[in-house]
Amino acid sequence: MVLDVTAKNLDEKDPKKQLLFSDQKVWWEIGKDLHGRMRYGAWQIKEIVDLTLQPMETRKERFLMNFDTDIETVEIEVKLSYFISGKKGDVIHSEKKTFEYDFD
C-alpha cells in the first residue's frame, strides 16, 4: 500500500517542470529466512518484519512543504494506492486541492 503526496506548480506550462514536492509512504512486509535474509518464497520465510498497517489502526502522516517565493498557483494531490502485486497497483482513494498564494 502506497501513499503519494505531490505538489505541482500550475503556472508552469511544461509538465516535466511542474513538480514542486513529492513524498511517499509505503506499507509492506519484509519476509526473512532463519539467517535474517530477505526472502520471497513462502517456504523460505520463517519470520517477518511487519511494516504493514495493523487492523483498527489509523496512521497520521504529516507533510510540510515550502515552495519558492515566486510560486502562486499550487495543486496538492494525495493518493492512496493498493498493490495486489509488485506490478499492479490501483488508486483506492485520492484527494486534490488547488489554491493560490497572494502575499501582496
Binding site: V5, M56, T58, R59, K60, F63, Y101
Partner: peptide, 16 residues
C-alpha cells in the same frame, strides 16, 4: 518575501 507553504495532514485508516 513570505514563503508559499502548506501542511498536509493525512489519516490512513485500516478498517479491516
Amino acid at each position: 518575501k513570505w514563503i508559499p507553504s502548506a501542511v498536509v495532514n493525512v489519516f490512513v485508516e485500516n478498517k479491516t
